[in-house]
Design a protein around this nucleic acid. Structure first.
Length: 507
RNA sequence: GGGCGCGUAGCUCAAUGGUAGAGCAGUGGCCUUUUAAGCCAUUGGCUGAAGGUUCGAGUCCUUCCGCGCUCACCA
């Protein structure tokens, strides 16, 4: 079904026709460029500084972002990957026809290349004096923002694309006109790069494990389901990497990590997207306290590398990433925020009673661990603004973590919180195959009775563990949320290029 | 899924139930150092969709679609 063109698009299609009639190919196959905008400006400044003989001759390429036609001369700006540079055209230098065509046939948003000599205008801007230019690609649809200026190197928008729906659905347009959006994704890439550097330097091996899995596990989320036609097999998109990465420890790979996509068929909100990027690493012979220290070191390494600072502002709040982070025992934290010492209420009923006494609503179907988890989310998590490790969790919400010696009800697990947001989750990994089997069975029983969601028994994982798994510490962290912190993004969608939105009927 | 809010020109936004407007960009002019260039003129709308109330609906009511916030859900 052909697109319905707007009036503005029809005008541009007419210009396209006029160009063709003049023998100008609106989408030539090849382009030329000798300098980026920044390189050209730097080359000219070097020429000025060092009194070189001749001003630099350059060919620049980029997108036309502004045009000021003033009779026999025209000023314009093109934008490329490095920034913007001004073009200056004079009818008597480019030729009258080419000059007229530049003013009439080109539009904001078109890609062009321009050749000439760099100079500095009276107003002081380093500018390309165009001898020749060539259209590289005609834009039919106008970019949604048209007016902005550059003040002290900062782009000030006077009109912009603000509607979040359009920004996310047409991210290409958002990126094309909002340089700060491009910057978010450069920062995101830098974060991932820095994490790799940090882990690689410590002898970790980066691996890739299956995304399509016959049995999902490693987290408590509902999965997406799919189907392999030829194998006639139902498959799940992974909800975590954990069980596959720990199999690798059985295989004598002592330190492994993976950075990749997880998929969870759950609600969508400010901090949750159905697919998100996760880092998980597993480190043989480490426990959760060592992982805690690694976490601090890694985050600080990334902050130094990416931001060049360890104190950042997130949504108006100053956050200090300098280690050591606050360490707060979960039991103590819940006691302080709710007045409930869950250790004093060892059964679901006793804990539920204590909660009701304090006016805290209780889900009658929730087991004890879920009640405690609820207290964390509702009362504790919002108070954890500065980086905090919450540690020692109840066993029954942590089926893959190892018990604390001498306390079978609790496990060696911590979660890292910043800005009231859960950032990471780690534990001393359970490596006792018999205990693990018991936990799986308990979970199956639990989920059978209360949850509609059954956690499948992963027999191959148990078999792997029976071969012997070294004691190890494991770690998981959401890259999207770390990027939110580092880019001061209020919403996870700001840091995902193409966030999932409900499908909309077009036309 | 519940509650609240929003949806008007390409973009950003106006418009007591009474003729749908502005700025920007677009179009036509003038202009040889501008930079949100300026000046003159001017095009552009199925007001998210469908019903209803009314003499009359962008505005009130109902349903639907989409987005945002929020609650619920979410080891």
């Amino acid at each position: 079904m052909p697109a319905e063109y707007t009036n503005l698009e029809k005008q541009r299609l007419e210009k396209l026709e006029q160009l063709k009639q003049k023998g100008i190919e609106p989408y030539p196959t090849r382009a030329q460029r000798t300098h980026t905008s920044r390189q050209a400006i730097e080359a000219y400044e070097a020429f000025e500084r060092e009194n070189l003989g001749e001003a630099p001759q350059v060919i620049l390429a980029g997108r036309l972002r502004s045009m000021r036609v003033m009779g026999k001369i025209t000023f314009a700006h093109i934008e490329d990957g490095d920034g913007r540079v001004q073009l200056f055209l004079r009818a008597d230098e480019v030729g009258v026809d080419a000059f007229e065509s530049f003013n009439k046939d080109l539009d904001l948003g078109d890609f062009i290349q321009a050749a000439g000599e760099m100079f500095r205008t009276r107003a002081g801007e380093v500018t390309l004096k165009v001898k020749e230019y060539r259209l590289l690609a005609k834009a039919i649809t106008p970019l949604p923002a048209a007016k902005d200026e550059i003040v002290d190197g900062q782009i000030v928008h006077h009109a912009t694309l603000a509607d979040p729906e359009t920004r996310y659905r047409q991210r290409y347009a958002d990126l094309a006109i909002n340089p700060e959006v491009r910057q978010i994704f450069r920062t995101r890439a830098a974060i991932v790069r820095a994490i790799r550097e940090f882990l690689d330097a410590q002898g970790f091996l980066e691996v890739e494990t299956p995304i399509l899995q016959p049995i999902y596990g490693g987290a408590a989320a509902r999965p997406f389901t799919t189907y392999h036609n030829q194998l006639k097999q139902t498959l799940f998109l992974r909800i975590s990497f954990e069980l596959y990465l720990k199999r690798l420890l059985v295989g004598n790979l002592e330190r492994v990590y993976e950075i990749g996509r997880d998929f969870r068929n759950e609600g969508v909100d400010r901090t949750h997207n159905p697919e998100f990027t996760q880092l998980e690493f597993y480190c043989a012979y480490a426990d959760y306290l060592q992982v805690m220290e690694m976490t601090e070191a890694m985050i600080v390494y990334v902050a130094d590398k990416v931001l060049g600072k360890r104190i950042l502002t997130y949504q108006g709040v100053t956050l200090d990433l300098n280690p050591p982070w606050r360490r707060l025992e979960l039991r103590q934290g819940i006691l302080e925020t709710t007045g409930i010492d869950f250790q004093a209420y060892p059964t679901t009923q006793a804990l539920a009673g204590a909660m009701r006494n304090r006016g805290i609503p209780v889900d009658p179907n929730a087991p004890r661990g879920k009640l405690i988890d609820g207290l964390i989310g509702d009362y504790l998590e919002p108070t954890l603004i500065q980086p905090t490790f919450l540690y020692n969790y109840p066993r029954d919400i942590s089926p893959l973590a190892k018990s604390i010696p001498g306390d079978p009800t609790m496990v060696e697990r911590f979660e890292g919180f910043i800005a009231g947001m859960e950032l990471c989750n780690a534990f001393t990994e359970l490596n006792d195959p018999l205990d693990q089997e018991r936990r799986f069975l308990e979970m199956g029983r639990d989920y059978d009775s209360e949850d509609e969601q059954r956690h499948p028994m992963d027999e191959d994982y148990l078999r792997a563990m029976r071969y012997g798994m070294p004691p190890n510490g494991g770690f998981g962290m959401g890259i999207d949320r770390l990027t939110m912190l580092f880019t001061d993004a209020p919403n996870i969608r700001e840091v995902i290029l193409f966030p999932h939105l409900r499908e909309r009927e077009e036309e």
